[in-house]
């Protein structure tokens, strides 16, 4: 008797991964963040390549665990999660959807100019940098001079 196995397509896997939230910024998914670099079937084994945002980011191991949990719940039995450090992660890999969600959530998305474009709350461009570092390694701390609200800026790297 021949055994019929149906492997989910890689498109399907990407879709599932797009439902896995980033543990520190749960409004965007790990796919939005651009850290899933590859999804590939190698025979019976699904290989997912993940790149860390910052080398010391404490969320890295949680992210791998969340990805594993999500895919296991979809019935993926043989799974390998590989860490890929090159090419190094860049904020250019954030999806458009991810950028929009960040802004909606109150985090200014990264800009090549090196600072936020506008206050994510009131849209003012009258901004000041409070600190180059913020609540997580990937963010800096800014403040709007008009609505006076402090906010996170997703650093451009």
């Amino acid at each position: 008797m021949s055994q019929v196995t149906t492997q989910p397509s890689t498109d399907q896997i990407w879709e599932w991964l797009d439902a896995v939230p980033d543990p520190e910024i749960p409004v965007i998914s790990v796919v939005d963040l651009g850290i899933v670099r590859g999804v590939e079937w190698q025979g019976e084994t699904l290989v997912v390549s993940v790149t860390p945002t910052y080398s010391g980011c404490p969320a890295t191991s949680i992210i791998s665990l969340d990805i594993e949990t999500a895919l296991r719940s979809k019935g993926i039995e043989y799974l390998k999660i590989e860490t890929q450090i090159s090419p190094a992660w860049t904020t250019d890999w954030l999806s458009e959807k991810g950028r929009a969600k960040l802004e909606e959530y109150g985090i200014a998305p990264p800009q090549p100019a090196g600072g936020p474009e506008k206050c994510p709350r009131c849209g003012s461009k009258n901004l000041t940098k409070v600190s180059q570092f913020g609540s997580t390694p990937c963010k800096a701390h800014w403040r709007c001079q008009d609505c006076l609200e402090p906010f996170d800026y997703f650093k451009c790297i």
Partner: peptide, 17 residues
């Protein structure tokens, strides 16, 4: 506080490396 966070983040990067 901001400097505390900045120093802790720098340390974290270095430990990650």
């Amino acid at each position: 506080l901001e400097e505390d966070i900045a120093l802790a983040n720098t340390a974290l990067d270095l430990i990650g490396q």
